[in-house]
Amino acid sequence: MADTMQLSKSEIVAGELKKMQSELRAEKLPLREAVAETCRILFAFGHDSGLSGQITARAEQPGTYWTQRLGLGFDEIKSDNLLLVNEDLEVLEGKGMPNPANRFHSWLYRARPDLNCIVHSHAPHASALAMLEVPLVISHMDTCVLYDQVAFLEKWPGIPVGNEEGEIISGALGDKKAILLSHHGLLVGGASVEEACVLGVMFERAARLHLLAMAAGEIKPIPPELGREAQRWVSTQKRFEATFAYYSRRAGRELAI
């Protein structure tokens, strides 16, 4: 006889979240390997834009983080060619130079101690939306991991290599986890590498859905309480780790072709 058919939705949700904590498992990569795998995942999901875009993750020493070497594409990143840099972008470990645009990451890490990984890319659909100076609308269940989490920088401050751009972007992000940068691209931050990677992939999917829906008619909002419920449902570290592991397997298959 069924034991759960009389439970309320809130009771079922709480029970399933608890079950996922104990039963949803995925191999967790060491930090540098996770950063490198994030680069390859983003490439496989269409975020490639030549040498543009940066992925960074806080390192053990305060004020330092790992990032890719300028001159390599997302698909060429490995754990052993990452660079350890400080806030001034001085290389502490590794060979080569980081992208000078990493400077605004330094500002974001200063402003947001809760963020341990930042993904910035010029993915095509997010970039197309940025060209229209239109804020990203989250209005589909699949993308609710970003519900009420996307800020918008309406005016392009130019190439992000100065301290001014770092102050502007970190200020515009506020307490959100993601931002659409007009005439530029997307940026997301997470408490873990896995979270930032998942948010980056979903941001581009949300932008694609936004453009498709906008071409067909007016996008209808979802009820805020349901959007927040969905955001909480998919925003657990266990869920991020399991999704990241799937993205990694998928990227491995696609890059091997």
Rank of each mutant, 00 (worst) to 15 (best):
M1H: 08
M1Y: 04
E16N: 10
E16Y: 14
K19P: 00
L31G: 01
E33K: 15
A34D: 06
A34S: 15
T38L: 12
T38V: 14
C39W: 06
I41H: 11
L42C: 13
D48M: 10
D48P: 03
Q54G: 00
A57N: 03
R58E: 14
E60R: 07
T64C: 08
Q68V: 05
L70R: 09
G71C: 09
G73E: 11
F74P: 04
F74E: 01
E76S: 11
D80V: 12
E90F: 05
E93F: 09
R103W: 05
H105R: 10
R110L: 03
A111G: 04
C117N: 09
I118A: 01
A128Q: 07
S139A: 15
H140C: 10
C144G: 04
E165D: 07
S170L: 03
A172E: 07
G185E: 13
A191R: 13
S192D: 07
V193T: 10
V193W: 04
E195P: 06
V198R: 02
L199D: 04
L211F: 03
M214W: 00
G217I: 10
G217M: 11
E218C: 02
K220R: 13
K220V: 09
P221E: 13
L226W: 12
Q231L: 09
W233C: 05
S235A: 14
A245P: 04
S248I: 05
G252F: 04
R253G: 12
A256I: 07
